[in-house]
Simulated scan of single mutants.
Amino acid sequence: MGADGKVYTLAEVSQHNNSKDCWLVIGGKVYDVTKFLEDHPGGDEVLLSATGKDATDDFEDVGHSSSARAMMDEYFVGEIDASTIPAKTKYIPPKQPHYNQDKTSEFIIKLLQFLVPLAILGLAVGIRFYTKSTS
């Protein structure tokens, strides 16, 4: 391990957010992944976009291998002060009216009740004019 138990705030870690100096917070630990940027299979943009926040969910969602997890030890620089990481808020979708399939079906039926007779009338008038013009 690279550091001797140093504790960083999220503000301190957030300053390391470019391709020449890139730090990540994963699982309560801080990693300096600057030397790994070019070798990362997902590209450097993936790592750079995870700076300045707790990247644990991003890391876990990908499903890294055990060898990738073991490799993290060489990039370890310290711990994160958990009190500096904002609490996650649960997403609450906006209130919307319930989708009523029956109302949609009713609308389609009413629309067809109007359009079908109109189409039949148009067809009848078209046939009438066609037969008059050909005779």
Rank of each mutant, 00 (worst) to 15 (best):
G2Q: 02
G2S: 14
A3M: 14
D4F: 07
K6F: 07
K6W: 01
K6R: 15
K6V: 14
V7A: 06
V7Q: 13
Y8W: 00
Y8K: 07
T9D: 05
T9F: 07
L10V: 01
L10W: 07
E12C: 06
E12T: 00
S14G: 13
S14F: 09
S14L: 08
Q15F: 03
Q15M: 11
H16P: 10
N17A: 11
N17T: 02
N18I: 07
S19D: 15
K20I: 07
K20D: 11
D21W: 05
C22Q: 07
C22I: 05
C22W: 05
W23N: 04
I26F: 01
G27W: 06
K29S: 05
D32I: 00
K35M: 10
E38Y: 09
E38N: 15
D39K: 15
D39I: 13
H40Y: 06
P41V: 11
P41T: 06
G42E: 06
G43K: 06
G43W: 04
G43H: 05
G43C: 04
D44Q: 14
V46P: 04
L47Y: 05
L48C: 00
L48M: 01
A50Q: 06
A50S: 11
T51P: 01
T51K: 04
G52I: 07
K53V: 05
D54E: 02
D54M: 05
D54I: 09
D54W: 01
A55L: 08
F59N: 04
F59G: 11
G63Y: 10
S65N: 08
S66K: 03
M71D: 09
M71A: 14
M72Q: 10
F76L: 14
V77G: 06
V77Y: 00
V77P: 03
G78V: 03
E79A: 12
I80T: 08
D81M: 03
D81Y: 00
A82K: 12
S83I: 00
I85V: 14
K88W: 07
K88S: 08
Y91L: 08
I92K: 09
I92N: 13
P93S: 10
P94I: 02
P94C: 07
K95V: 08
D102R: 07
S105V: 15
F107L: 13
I108R: 10
I109E: 03
L112A: 06
L112Y: 00
Q113D: 04
Q113A: 06
V116S: 03
P117R: 04
P117Y: 08
P117S: 05
L118M: 11
A119L: 10
L123Y: 08
L123P: 07
A124I: 08
V125P: 03
I127A: 02
R128H: 12
R128N: 11
F129Q: 10
F129P: 09
Y130N: 01
Y130C: 07
S133W: 14
S133A: 15
T134N: 14
T134A: 13
S135Y: 09
S135W: 01
S135T: 12
